[in-house]
């Protein structure tokens, strides 16, 4: 598992653009958001604080879906299947690698967001950071699963608008879910990102955390495990 994690990190380290995407872009976007809402800082707080925990989800989905697609199409997946490594260990290795990247990413974004840009996390920036890592793993698991349905990198990128954007729109980040059309409110509860957003929202607002946070986190973890299980089923040895 450690060997796989190290191999994935070695590969990403070489790819400067991906490093920039993972570590630099979220900070840049957050800073941009701050000055977009220059005269309405309450809105920045409402959107920006949860954003710190959602960036890892979005970017890990993108990076994993493409990285896994490359393994599938370049023949290295068959290579992996011929090695003494089990599927859970392989996926565990990916999870460790992307989890570690997410931790660095979350640390940077949270530091900039909560210390420099004046965002406010009532229950502590560390909680946002932890939730961010969980969301990154959810993004990774979904990306891994999605990569089974793409044949080219272009197709993999198309999953961004198809899988990620609807969840972002419906989760309550841009508009409160209570203000949405009734059917959409129900649909939103079918998406794991809704629960991820609720947890982040609770962590950044005053008020008791309560059992709902635990429930939200449990849903995110459950969705991650389900996506990993589905993803594992797509790592077939029988590549025709």
């Amino acid at each position: 598992m450690i060997a796989t994690a190290r191999r994935v990190l070695w590969q990403i380290r070489r790819d400067r653009r991906t490093i920039a995407l993972l570590l630099g872009v979220p900070v840049g976007l957050l800073a941009l958001l701050r000055y977009v809402f220059d005269s309405r800082l309450a809105v920045f707080q409402h959107i920006g604080a949860p954003m710190c925990g959602l960036f890892p989800f979005i970017l890990m989905f993108l990076v994993t879906s493409i990285a896994m697609l490359r393994e599938r199409t370049s023949g290295t997946l068959e290579r992996l299947m011929s090695l003494p490594i089990s599927k859970p260990a392989l996926l565990g290795g990916y999870a460790i690698a992307f989890g570690a990247l997410a931790a660095v990413q979350a640390a940077i974004v949270c530091t900039v967001g909560f210390l420099l840009l004046g965002l406010n996390a009532d229950h502590g920036a560390w909680l946002v950071g932890l939730l961010a890592i969980g969301n990154a793993l959810l993004g990774m698991a979904l990306g891994l699963f999605a990569s089974a349905f793409a044949r080219t990198e272009f197709q993999a990128v198309q999953f961004m608008p198809a899988i990620v954007f609807p969840q972002l729109l419906l989760c309550g980040l841009f508009a409160p879910r209570g203000a949405m059309a009734a059917p959409l409110q129900d649909v939103a509860y079918a998406f794991p990102l809704t629960y991820a957003f609720d947890a982040l929202s609770r962590a950044t607002h005053s008020g008791p955390l309560g059992g709902t946070l635990v429930l939200d986190v449990a849903v995110v973890i459950g969705a991650t495990l389900a996506a990993l299980a589905l993803g594992a089923a797509t790592l077939r040895r029988r590549t025709p």
């Binding site: 191999r7 070695w10 070489r14 790819d15 068959e78 011929s82 003494p84 089990s86």
Partner: peptide, 21 residues
């Protein structure tokens, strides 16, 4: 597979490896 592969060194027909390593 894991038990079997532990005893095997395999050279595939095509050298598919990780380009960034």
């Amino acid at each position: 597979p894991v038990a079997a592969h532990r005893r095997v060194g395999y050279v595939a027909g095509e050298p598919y490896l990780w380009p960034a390593l």
